[in-house]
Design a protein around this nucleic acid. Structure first.
Lengths: 193, 193
DNA sequence: AACGGCCGTTTAGTATTCTAGACAAATGGC
DNA sequence: GCCATTTGTCTAGAATACTAAACGGCCGTT
């Protein structure tokens, strides 16, 4: 009887099986539905979710092929229920070390992997509502103008100095409801847009 | 005889085996040395590197435990021989889409995961030479002052407008050789510092 | 040449994963 | 209540990963 000793429960990161189960339920799929998509059997899904086996890379890749997320993104996925999304200007953290000082968005920056850009939204700009695409995180600071941001159903109007941080898997939408350009310094993971 | 069909060669990303081999050689280890560190046998390493088997998550985790890199970082690792490191100011790419326009550092931004900060180096500042730590990427733009940057033995003096992009596994060092503060907008992956 | 040592590869056997199918519990119609 | 579906779990057998030990190749020394 294969125990959890060999590789059943992850020693360093989270439990792989539990995360798969959560991810599957987030997509509202049954084990059999996912199995069919992924090209494996339902039993395999069950065993993995129970952490009774340590799937091969090939199998895990097949399974994760069932929904739009890469294997690396899955392994680094943060399953915390509801991370902070919106930040007031005063929430921006000012860090001052010995010789080096800097400002950064968000408080707990560990386990985050992002890329920053300098964006400009003309009045009336709208990115639409799509894009669950493959995982990733997005954050940014409003420099000038007004930005209407909708994330996972929750909507906010951000003014200069305000910032945001959310997981790209959540449906999101950017709009400029104002009459002047909206400048945002933003950042996101690989696929960008 | 197990063929490469089941999961030997990766269908989407790069070849996992080749990457492991390259990574191992970058650290100057033999298969047996790595096997001993990782707690597996040399044969396993050989088979994986030849892509004749698709290792289990547990095994791959053990193997990668041999050197300081996480499994997720390994899977997203860019193995291109010598990616561009230094960028002239004119090399910064200005992207202008329909409603959105932005400037970003580096040309091929796919498969990059970074986080940006606003740094200030006082005259004489020096980060030292350590920090291979766990993987990651670093990039940045010099805003004002002069930044002396050494990456993998190669050294450059960057002035305002210049930028850099390199893999954190390479030994690197930041210095301010000037008499005034040096301001840099930089970005890097999780561990930050 | 012959030896010892280290290298990557390969092979036979064991351990594990994965499949196909059966099982019990929960759900929804009628 | 009863049937039909669907759910997650479990079991026997096939397929695969992993181990332990060998093999041939290469280099430096004697």
């Amino acid at each position: 009887m294969p125990d959890a000793g060999a590789g059943g429960n992850d020693t360093d990161g989270q439990d792989l099986g539990v995360r798969l189960r959560e991810l599957r339920k987030m997509y509202g799929l049954s084990q059999r539905e996912l199995a069919k998509r992924a090209g494996v059997t339902n039993g395999t899904i069950s065993l993995i979710e129970q952490s009774r086996i340590s799937p091969s890379i090939g199998s895990l890749k097949k399974v994760l092929g069932g929904f739009p997320i890469s294997i690396a993104d899955f392994l680094t996925l943060d399953m915390s229920p509801r991370a902070k999304v919106f930040y007031q200007a005063k929430d921006l953290r000012e860090i001052a070390g010995g010789d080096v000082s800097f400002r950064l968005v968000g408080r707990d920056t560990r386990d985050r992997a992002i890329q920053m850009m300098h964006e400009r939204y003309v009045p009336g700009a709208d990115t639409g509502e799509e894009m669950l695409s493959h995982a990733g995180e997005e954050c940014g600071i409003v420099i000038s103008g007004v930005l209407e941001l909708t994330v996972g159903g929750e909507s906010r109007r951000l003014v200069p100095g305000d910032a945001y941080y959310f997981n790209s898997r959540l449906p999101h939408r950017f709009q400029n409801p104002g009459t002047v350009d909206c400048v945002v310094v933003s950042a996101c993971t690989p696929p960008s847009f």
